[in-house]
Amino acid sequence: MAIWIDQALVCLRKHMLLFATVIAVVLGFTIGLLCRQLKPSPKVIILISFPGEIFLRLMKMLILPLIVSSIITGLANLNNKSASKIGLYTIVYYISTTVLATIIGLILVLTIRPGDVANNNVMSVRSSGGAPSASALDVFLDLVR
């Protein structure tokens, strides 16, 4: 029995980040379901979602520098002859996938026209004389963003 407990503790220490992530996801899901039953106001929802939005913006900001630094580090660890060949392949691959993603994005935007309905509603409100109002909370959170 003691050997089994020791093995379980070794496995837990080895995979602590995985276990903590799974527990955090389950807790977040449970707390979210419980909070939904309280029917919070829109201001409370904005305040609760604000830290997550800031976190996601920070993660998006880190993606490109991490990719570039990992490519540079990988190429620096190679010898000169293979580094030049692999570096050329990497640059061609990166540029071609970026161009392909841009073309697909433009095609989808031109065909789907996202936000078209929302823009028509805003234009009708503005043309009727009313301006969309922003609360002090919205202004402050936009300033922090």
Rank of each mutant, 00 (worst) to 15 (best):
I103M: 08
T102N: 07
V44C: 02
A118L: 15
L47K: 12
I95P: 00
A83F: 07
K14Q: 15
K85F: 13
P114T: 07
I91K: 01
R13F: 11
A101D: 08
K81Y: 14
R36Q: 09
M123W: 05
S128W: 09
I45P: 04
N120I: 12
L33Y: 10
A2G: 13
S135Q: 02
V139A: 14
G130M: 11
V26D: 05
K43E: 13
N80Q: 12
D6Y: 12
I3V: 13
W4A: 15
G32A: 08
I31E: 06
L108Q: 07
I103Q: 03
P51F: 04
S82R: 04
S84D: 04
I45L: 15
T102P: 01
Q37L: 12
N79C: 00
I67V: 15
V10F: 07
K81I: 14
V122M: 14
M16N: 12
G130S: 13
L58K: 03
V92F: 04
S124C: 11
D142P: 00
M1C: 11
H15I: 14
A76E: 10
L137Y: 08
V92E: 05
V92C: 10
P65W: 00
N119H: 13
S135K: 02
G87C: 05
Q37R: 13
T98P: 01
A134D: 13
M123K: 14
A131W: 02
L75F: 01
I46L: 15
S70H: 06
S49I: 11
G129K: 02
L78R: 05
V10P: 00
G87M: 04
I107P: 01
L38C: 12
T98F: 05
L110W: 09
A134M: 15
D138I: 06
Y94V: 09
L18D: 07
V26K: 01
L106Y: 09
L66P: 00
S70G: 03
N120H: 11
L9G: 06
S127C: 07
T73K: 05
V10M: 06
A20R: 14
I112F: 04
R57W: 01
V99K: 00
T90D: 02
E53P: 00
R57G: 07
P42E: 05
L58T: 01
A24T: 07
A20V: 15
P65C: 01
I71Q: 01
L64G: 03
L106Q: 08
S96A: 13
L64T: 09
S128K: 09
L143D: 04
D116H: 12
P65S: 01
S133L: 07
F55V: 06
T30K: 10
L110P: 02
S128A: 14
Y89H: 14
V117M: 13
M123S: 10
K39Q: 12
E53S: 12
R13Q: 10
I23M: 15
F29K: 08
V122P: 02
S128C: 09
L47I: 12
G115A: 07
A24K: 00
L27V: 07
A76P: 03
G130N: 11
Q37F: 11
G129W: 00
K81S: 15
